[in-house]
């Protein structure tokens, strides 16, 4: 039997790694990968709490399902945007897409 803490620790570590990736990367696709990591960590948290404590409704499971679906949608859209960006500027370095400033 695995205690709840193990899942939480795992998800925390994954979340932090993803967070670091978002902050440090420049390439849009790599940032997207890091976001996926964070979403996966959150999903673990949802399902863990749900199966330990919410045995009536399993809302955490359903939420995780939703997260998966939304993440898929997000990836699709984000990749569309990235390809568009590349087509316009010949780069996917988001530091160069900095028109929205003073």
């Amino acid at each position: 039997m695995i205690p709840l803490e193990n899942f939480l620790i795992l998800s925390s570590i994954l979340f932090c790694i993803g967070f670091y990736g978002v902050l440090s990367r420049k390439n849009a696709i790599l940032i997207l990968i890091s976001v996926e990591l964070m979403l996966a960590a959150v999903g673990i948290n949802f399902v863990a709490f749900s199966s330990f404590y919410d045995t009536e409704r399993y809302s955490g499971h359903i939420f995780a399902l939703f997260v998966v679906a939304i993440a898929a949608a997000e990836v699709g859209l984000a990749l569309g945007i990235i390809i568009r960006l590349f087509r316009e500027r010949k780069t996917i370095n988001i530091d160069e897409a900095n028109e929205l400033k003073w």
Partner: peptide, 23 residues
């Protein structure tokens, strides 16, 4: 081969701090 952003150290510190908070 990609070149990473300049905020690598800051990002590292922040990620570690968030991890600390969570753990």
């Amino acid at each position: 081969v990609v070149i990473d952003g300049s905020q690598k150290p800051v990002g590292f510190i922040i990620a570690v701090l968030i991890g600390f908070v969570l753990l």
